[in-house]
Write a protein that binds this DNA or RNA. Sequence first.
DNA 1: CCCTGATTCGC
DNA 2: GCGAATCAGG
Length: 176
Amino acid sequence: MTDAGPSWTKERVELLKRLWGEGRSASQIAAEIGGVSRNAVIGKVHRLGLAGRVLRSNGAAPAPAQPRRAASEEARGPSPAPMPTVVAPAPAPLALVRPESIAPAEVALPLSERVTIMELREFMCRWPMGDPSSPDFRFCGARSITGLPYCMHHARIAYQPAAERKRSDRRVVGFR
DNA sequence: CCCTGATTCGC
DNA sequence: GCGAATCAGG
């Protein structure tokens, strides 16, 4: 029989809607539904009109994602007409970091990822943890933000606005 | 190098 | 309608 295999059946779509609504990532959903790639999930989400979810790990605004020219068009050469000035994206106000939000007690760190300097890689968070003179000294080692030496969590601590640091009048948070 | 979603377009 | 390839980014 020419079984086309599992497609977007009612059940699968319902599951997709539910998981997406719960804020699961496309790859997670894809793995859970099975038989589909994360691209397939994202594509379906868009066709269903479910996109535009504000939920984001960092709370950042969704990527503008400028339209990309077709491959055929690109092969043909530059566009004859100059691209009309794209509206400059409004400077997204960075989420203010309040002292409470970085209080050690409130923070859940991926402690399992601590690494030694030898294990440290370019893409790993370089936040020092522990006494540098101790053999127990480690670095955070979590996935770092590309272009930055720290993971999202430690980048927030490292790059606190001066005004915030002063206002909160806190010493070094401490290398946990 | 890991991940995220957004978009396009051949199928 | 589907989703791989690609893009843009954390």
